[in-house]
Each structure stands twice: as structure tokens, then as C-alpha cells.
Design a binder for these strands. Structure first.
Length: 860
RNA sequence: GCGAAAGUGGCGGAAUUGGCAGACGCGCCAGACUUAGGAUCUGGUACCGAAAGGUGUGGGGGUUCGAGUCCCCCCUUUCGCACCA
């Protein structure tokens, strides 16, 4: 294949994308220009895109993701950074196993074939990856380190096993983490998840809940707000207090969590969740026990989140148990109700209907008393002196709960205090008297990582009847997946059916023992993969800590926002753990995050734009685009068509426009190549340029300045627009290569070389070809090629066209020098013929002069 | 229901952050070259108006010499959340 193109050494007259792209892809492979060297003294830049799942085919979303990353990688390389730009495969997971179940293929062979095909696609797109660092999660030299990390967590008590109610996807026959079943739907197939009691492995991400929130301030300048917001909501940090309500005629206490301890005098009941453990204890011997049990069972069975039908009606039952309000001494009934969740807080709440919407609704339904204990205060009062207790009318008919802060009434000695004062003082009072304390709770739950699947990293644990559970010794890693599992898709791990895998010896007593048959969630693999790129062949450690110091944190991470609370929160957690075991010296793995928008296409015959997908039949095959238009044009269009964070609506005519542009540039360079590649160039200082030549140079330097600053913010669409503008100006320059004077040739060379270099991040093959055509050998990444630097002197306009407004309406323009004084500008504006006509007979009230910008004459 | 973001030509989108609205491209119209055009090149293209001129950034109000940009109300769309005590 390569031989076919060997004869093409120089630029062809016509633009043939396929030839150029093949030529340069081969050249890059041979020279290894994209391989990052650790000992390179230049400043590093780690450019990372989310690694793909090897489904078999690249889709346009990938093309967009990698085009953005590749543009940045090229930009940084051309600026002289030592760029690390790797890629790999998130190759464990469901589809390989589904293929095994349905078609009997070997999941490893299936995966490797897919990787080979997709690697070819990425190479045909000309993505500038360092292929020497490629990794794949399903290979033992990778998942060995998943297991190593698991053991490290086990040692530190961060991995543990417990029976718990877990999210179960009935379609996929496996457990899902909370993050993967957000909204009650399976993240992968959208099936409604069920709850099951199973013994499962968990990672104690909750130990890091506070850091996951607090450390956001280290990254918030360069992560999208919406991602941080979602993570913050997911962690669900909430400040409040625990309060113990003693149970009457018992030594038991019911602990509640509240954020509004200031409303405690308004409590009319304690409400327990149906799963609350005290429920059975407190009702021993009660006449109501049967009714309560039946009610609790009913609630549990109905507790499947249901988005479509909205909220469930609140239902509850009085248990007959009584509790004592520790602040007021009041006796309160204890209820059980469906709206109190065991997973949050303590699974018990104090019901304060006057000041909580849910409690209000509940009290209305069951005719419970409603007592107002917070009175509204004006904004000024909130920040000023406490107001004296107003005589709150306890019997006042409330139509809604009042949930704002205010001033306490009907609250004994606390009456008259402002909410925010009372919240602190009452928590301190509770602590002093031993019935509570200020507390912070989190919504996030520990990360359930057990999966009843084959195609994942086996959990490296052994069970021995004598010794109990034992970790697999480090030197025995990896625990390899067996070759001969049967894929039934029945909910038990296929590993359990492989005796050679299950049966082993106990590392402690050397007696017979059994291996754990659960595998790990694939999000474990992706939590730390980008550290493995630093040192992909290390067989003594996941990576060398010196490599981590050299390359990480990631400078720019690019991917879809669908992972805002899955991958991106797990990887932050994992990094903090790696820090705690001394592997990395920082808290956050990613300095700057870009979440790119989806690629959508019209659904045939409708006006709807939806994400490209096989099932909707609106997918576009990248290979077809490359064949029809070339990789360069495909990439250029994808980056030009919309800002990177927006949805991108696919358009075939748009991509044709990209080809047209590339062809025009190519033809222009072709026309000039002979003149420009001649030796004996003149320097700009040698000559007095024509006004047109100076204008072209000005445009060149303005464009350099614009694109350079656009790149820092990844405003790639406007960068492409600026390249097109520069090209248009070169085209208008209209000099004849054969006869143009030396100074014009200089201006053209400067413009075209800047254009070619700045095009490289978008369309690297054609840029390389044109660079060579302009007489440079050795490729763009040789030392001669550098990202151009804008000269502010040359970029500055020689004259300004200043708009003149009269009463805010544009009426005229005047030409002025860039350093024109305000006074001169004012004078020439007032002297303007059209302005004079308008102000005739009117009074000039004032004249606003914005230096270098505009003049506005205000008349009456 | 709660929360957040966003509404600019036929379309994707620009607008140095309060200073010439519509850059750049797509599409469309006209012309040139062509046996031909779904190729290429040239010109035009926010709206109303014959023109002068006027009107325009979802609607309404406000601040300002000046508002796409800031403030208030409303409408619409998109996204996120799902009883979080």
C-alpha cells in the first residue's frame, strides 16, 4: 500500500486529499514525530481526550472529540511544548459480553478486532497520537493494576463487602452503581432498575465526599459550571444537626437529621422511613405491630422511582409510639411514612408542617396540627437587630408552608431570635446537653463496584472456609480471566461456572479455597487510565511516580458531558486516593475540562435533530466522509461548524465548503510555490512596502493574534473563520507570482506561511504538503516551523474609520490616525458635513468621544 | 414541580464584554466560462421602502449619551434533578 505513494514527493497541481493524507500518515509513522519523550527539556503539555469504548466503529462524536484534542495538541507542539497526546481503549464492558452471549464469539477476540479496526480509522483521520503508549483495559498488563489498586483500597479499609439493597438492571442482569442508575434508569440501556439485596463490594467514596466538594475551588476556573454543579448536587453536602428524640417509656432514642433546627418547636411528629431499623424494635409487643409491618412492606415494594408519573402521594401510619421533643419536652407521635428515605440523613425526620412543604402536605392529609414557629422578617431586619417576639397566632390558617428563614416565635426561650442565630445556638445547646450536635450529611453513597459479569477485572479476593476472606497476594497478580467461560446471561457471573478459576488455594493456610467471581465495574478502569499512559509498560507499578510529576495533572481534558457524575467524579476520587498512597503529589487530576457538544443529524423526513445513532438511522460513517472529502476537510468542517461546546448539526454541504476552502488555499500555494521557494529571500526591512502590501501584513499579524488567543479558549470555529478571512485577503491581493516585486512577495510569503502553519491543527496533512511545497523540508514539526508570533506594530491599523453618531444613531464616519486626540476627533466629527446638517438649529448638549472607537453627538 | 442556561438573517454562527449588529461559512439569486453542470470564477443577499429614509438581536418595561450585551416582568426552548429533611 505504502509503495503506491512513494513516487509522490512533491506537491501535485491539483488537490487530491487521499494521496496527500496517505503520504503524510506514512511519513508521520516512519518518523515518530508524535511520540512524547519524557527527557525532553521543553515545558510539557498533557492533552487528553476521553478514551473510546471499542464498539467496532468510530462515530462522528468521536471524530469531533478527537479533532478538538488533536487541534490543541498540534497548536501546543507548534508553540514548542513537549506534548503528550495518547489514546487507548476502554475495552471491558457489556457489548463484548453480549456478543459472546448472542453469537458465541470470544469477547477478547471480538474486542481486539474492534480495536484494530478503530485504530485504523483514527489513523486514517490522521490523529496525532503517540501510539507507542496505547493501552487497553482488557489486557492483563492493564487490569493487573486495577486489582493492585483494589488491594490497596482493601488494605486501607476503603474497599469492603456488605449486603445491601443495590440497583439491579433486569435487562443486563447486573448490579449498577448509584451513579449508573441515576433517575432510576440504567445508564446504558435505559431500563428501569430494581432493588435487590445482594452482598457486594463497595469503595468508600463517601470518605472523600468533603474533599470532592471542597477541592472544586482548585479547578472551578477551568471546569464548566454545569459539571461542577452536577457533581456538587450529586455529593449533596448539607449542613444541619442531628437531634435525638427520646422514646417515651423506653431507653431508645430516635436520631433525626434536620437543616432547620430553628423550627424544632413546630415539630408535630417524628416520621420514620419504612426501612428504619428501630421500627421493629420499638414495636415489640405492640398491638399495632402487624399493621405497621404490613404498611412498611407495602411501602418498600412500591419504592421504585417513577419519573413519568411524578411524585407519589404521601402515605403514613401512626405507630402508636411516642417521642419527646428535647427542646420543648412536648410528646410527639411517631409515624412511619413513604416520603422519608432511609438512604438520606438518618432515615428519620421531625415533621414541621408549618415550615416544610412535604410535612405540610402530610399534615394536611392526616389532619395533624400545624404550628407556626417562624415569622417572616423584612430583609433589613434579617441583617439588623433581632426583633422582639411577635405574638404568633398558633391557630392561624396557613395555606402553604413558610420555608424561608425568619424570626422564631412560639419557641420558648429562643423566641425572638433570627433563624441563622438560633440554628447555631440551638445546635450548641443540644450538644452541651447531650441530645444532638451540628452535623454535615452527604447524599453520595459508596461506589458499588461488583458486577456479576465476565468481561471485567476479577476482584482479587479468595474465600477460605477456615481463614475467611483473604486478599490475593500482590505477587500473584494479575488474577487472569479464564479462557473457557460459558456465557449464559443469567445474572450470576460466568466466572462462577469455571471450576479452574473458582477453585484455588488459600494464601494463608494453603487449603482449598474459592475465588471471588464478581468482576469490577468498568469505571474502575477509566478512573486512572490516563496515568498509565505515562508509563504504559511498567510491570512493577501502575506508573512511576516521577512520570506522574513530569506529566500530570492533565492540562486539558476533552469529552462529552454525559460523564459529569460518573467517570469525572470517580477519577477525582481515585486521584485523591493515589495521593494518599503517595503516587501523585496533587489533589485534582485535570486542570481544565472541556465538554464538547453532541453531533446531531436530521431524522429522515422530519425536522428533528437527534444525536447520531444506529437505531435512529441518522448516523454518518466517518470512513465515508474521509473517502468522499478527505480527513482534512472532515476535521476542518467539524471544528468550524459550531463552537465546540454547542450541538453540531451535521451538514453535507457544510463539509463541501470545507473542501472548497482547502482547495482554494492549495491552489494559491501551488501558484506561488515556485516564486516563494526560491532561495535568496529579502528581509522586510530592505524594502518600502506598498499600501496593499502593508495591509496584507497587517491582516496577517491580526490573524495570528486572533487565532493564538482563540486557541487558549478553544474557540476553534472563529479561528477557522479568521483563517478564511486571511486567505480571502491574500486572494484579493492579486499580485502575479511571476512579476510581483520583492516586497510584495515577502508579504505573500509571510501570509501564506502563517496560514499554512495555523491551518495545521485543523487540517494537518494538507498543511504539511503545502509547507513542503513552500520549500521547507523535514515537516512542520522541525525547528523551522513555529507558531507565528504577532507583531503588534504590524497589526496596528494605520488609520481608523471612526463612526459618528448623532443621538445614538449612526450618521457618518471620519478617517483618523490611530493616535488621534480626543479633541481632534471631536472637532472633525463636528466639522463633518452630514453632522453639521443635522445639528443645524439645534443645541449640542454634549459630545461623547470614545478614543479610537466612536463619537456620539447629543443634540436637543 | 424545583433549579440552571439560552433565545441574533432561510441555516450554523460572529460581535475586542456597554460603543459601526449580522464576521466567516452554508443556502439562495444573478452573471461569466462551458456541449453540460450538483464543477469553477465574479457580484449580490437582515427586513420595509422606488428613493430619501426607516425598522430591526423572543415580547414588554427600565438604566445609559449609547443596550444583542446590564436590571425587572413575561413567553419559549434546552438541559439537569426527582420527596435530599
Amino acid at each position: 500500500m505504502a509503495d503506491v505513494y512513494d513516487w509522490i514527493t512533491f506537491m501535485d497541481e491539483k488537490y487530491f486529499p487521499e494521496q496527500i493524507e496517505n503520504k503524510w500518515q506514512q511519513r508521520w509513522r516512519e518518523t515518530g514525530v508524535f511520540e512524547a519523550k519524557t527527557d525532553d527539556p521543553r515545558e510539557k503539555f498533557y492533552c487528553l481526550e476521553m478514551l473510546p469504548y471499542p464498539s467496532g466503529f468510530l462515530h462522528m462524536g468521536h471524530v469531533r472529540n478527537y479533532s478538538i484534542g488533536d487541534a490543541l495538541a498540534w497548536f501546543k507542539r507548534l508553540q514548542g511544548f513537549n506534548v503528550l497526546h495518547p489514546i487507548g481503549w476502554d475495552s471491558f464492558g457489556q457489548p463484548a459480553e453480549q456478543a459472546a452471549i448472542k453469537r458465541g464469539v470470544n469477547p477478547r477476540d471480538w474486542t481486539e478486532e474492534n480495536i484494530a479496526h478503530m485504530r485504523g480509522q483514527l489513523q486514517r483521520l490522521g490523529m496525532s497520537y503517540d501510539w507507542s503508549r496505547e493501552i487497553a483495559a482488557h489486557r492483563p498488563d492493564y487490569y493487573k493494576w486495577d486489582q493492585w489498586f483494589f488491594l490497596k483500597m482493601l488494605e486501607r479499609g476503603l474497599a469492603y463487602k456488605k449486603v445491601s439493597q443495590v440497583n439491579w438492571c433486569p435487562k443486563e442482569q447486573t448490579v449498577l452503581s448509584n451513579e449508573q442508575s441515576s433517575g432510576g434508569l440504567c445508564w446504558r440501556c435505559g431500563t428501569r432498575v430494581e432493588k435487590r439485596d445482594l452482598e457486594q463490594w463497595f469503595l468508600r467514596i463517601t470518605d472523600y465526599a468533603e474533599q470532592l466538594v471542597a477541592d472544586m475551588k482548585q479547578i472551578d476556573a477551568r471546569w464548566p459550571d454545569k459539571v461542577l454543579k452536577r457533581q456538587s448536587d450529586w455529593v449533596g453536602r448539607s449542613e444541619g444537626a442531628f437531634i435525638d428524640f427520646a422514646v417515651k417509656d423506653s431507653n431508645k432514642k430516635i436520631r433525626v437529621f434536620t437543616t432547620r433546627i430553628d423550627t424544632i418547636f413546630g415539630a408535630n411528629a417524628i416520621v420514620l422511613s419504612a426501612e428504619h431499623p428501630l421500627l421493629t424494635e420499638l414495636l415489640q409487643g405492640s398491638a399495632l405491630k402487624q399493621d405497621v409491618d404490613a404498611f412498611a412492606e407495602k411501602v418498600k415494594s412500591e419504592r421504585t422511582p417513577d419519573r413519568e408519573t411524578g411524585e407519589e402521594e404521601k402515605e403514613g401510619l401512626n405507630t402508636g409510639v411516642l417521642a419527646i421533643n428535647p427542646f420543648s419536652g412536648e410528646i410527639l407521635p411517631v409515624w412511619v411514612a413513604n416520603y422519608v428515605l432511609m438512604e438520606y440523613g438518618t432515615g428519620a425526620v421531625m415533621s414541621v408542617p408549618a415550615h416544610d412543604e412535604r410535612d405540610f402536605e402530610f399534615a394536611q392529609k392526616y389532619s395533624l396540627p400545624i404550628r407556626q414557629v417562624i415569622a417572616p422578617v423584612s430583609h433589613e431586619q434579617m441583617n439588623a437587630e433581632p426583633v422582639p417576639t411577635t405574638a404568633g397566632d398558633a391557630s392561624a390558617e396557613m395555606k402553604h408552608s413558610f420555608t424561608d428563614y425568619g424570626v422564631l416565635i412560639n419557641s420558648g426561650e429562643w423566641g425572638g431570635k433570627l433563624s441563622k442565630v438560633a440554628i447555631a445556638e440551638m445546635a450548641a445547646h443540644a450538644k452541651k446537653n447531650g441530645f444532638g450536635e451540628a452535623a454535615v450529611t452527604y447524599r453520595i453513597r459508596d461506589w458499588g463496584v461488583s458486577r456479576q459479569r465476565f468481561w471485567g477485572a476479577p476482584v482479587p479476593v479468595i474465600y477460605c472456609d477456615k481463614c475467611g476472606m483473604a486478599p490475593v497476594p500482590y505477587e500473584q497478580l494479575p488474577v487472569m480471566l479464564p479462557e473457557n467461560a460459558a456465557f449464559t446471561g443469567t445474572g450470576e457471573s460466568p466466572l462462577a461456572g469455571v471450576p479452574e478459576f473458582v477453585n484455588t488455594t488459600c494464601p494463608q493456610c494453603h487449603g482449598p479455597a474459592r475465588r471471588e467471581t464478581d468482576t469490577m465495574d468498568t469505571f474502575v478502569d477509566s478512573s486512572w487510565y490516563f496515568f498509565r499512559y505515562l508509563d504504559p509498560h511498567n510491570d512493577a507499578a501502575p506508573f512511576d511516580t516521577r512520570m506522574a510529576k513530569q506529566w500530570t495533572p492533565v492540562d486539558q481534558y476533552i469529552g462529552g458531558d454525559s460523564h459529569a457524575v460518573m467517570h469525572l467524579i470517580y477519577t477525582r476520587f481515585w486521584t485523591k486516593f493515589m495521593r494518599d498512597i503517595g503516587l501523585v503529589p496533587f489533589d485534582e487530576p485535570v486542570k481544565s475540562l472541556l465538554t464538547q457538544g453532541m453531533v446531531t443529524n436530521r431524522i429522515e423526513g422530519t425536522d428533528e435533530w437527534k444525536a447520531m445513532s444506529k437505531s435512529l438511522g441518522n448516523g454518518v460513517d466517518p470512513d465515508e466522509m474521509i473517502a468522499a472529502f478527505g480527513a482534512d476537510a472532515t476535521r476542518l468542517f467539524v471544528l468550524f461548524a459550531a463552537p465546540v461546546e454547542n450541538e453540531l448539526r451535521w451538514s453535507e454541504s457544510g463539509i463541501e465548503g470545507a473542501v472548497r476552502f482547502l482547495r482554494r488555499v492549495y491552489t494559491m500555494v501551488w501558484r506561488w510555490r515556485e516564486r516563494l521557494s526560491q532561495p535568496g529571500q529579502i528581509e522586510p526591512s530592505d524594502v518600502e512596502s506598498s499600501p496593499e502590501g502593508r495591509a496584507l501584513r497587517r491582516k496577517t499579524h491580526q490573524t495570528i493574534a486572533k487565532i493564538t488567543s482563540d486557541f487558549e479558549q478553544l474557540h476553534l470555529n472563529t479561528s477557522v473563520a479568521a483563517l478564511m478571512e486571511l486567505f480571502n485577503q491574500v486572494a484579493e491581493f492579486n499580485a502575479d507570482p511571476a512579476t510581483a516585486p520583492a516586497e510584495d512577495v515577502f508579504a505573500v510569503r509571510e501570509a501564506l506561511e502563517a496560514l499554512v502553519i495555523m491551518l495545521a491543527p485543523f487540517s494537518p496533512h494538507i498543511a504539511e504538503e503545502m509547507w513542503e511545497g513552500l520549500g521547507h523540508t523535514g515537516g512542520l514539526l522541525q525547528d523551522v516551523a513555529r507558531w507565528p508570533v504577532a507583531d503588534p506594530e504590524l497589526a496596528r491599523r494605520e488609520e481608523l474609520e471612526i463612526p459618528i453618531q448623532v443621538n445614538g444613531k449612526l450618521r457618518s464616519r471620519v478617517i483618523a490616525a490611530p493616535d488621534v486626540s480626543e479633541e481632534d476627533l471631536r472637532t472633525s466629527a463636528l466639522a463633518d458635513e452630514r453632522v453639521r446638517a443635522l445639528i443645524q438649529g439645534r443645541e449640542v448638549v454634549k459630545v461623547i468621544v470614545v478614543p479610537r472607537r466612536l463619537v456620539n453627538v447629543v443634540i436637543r
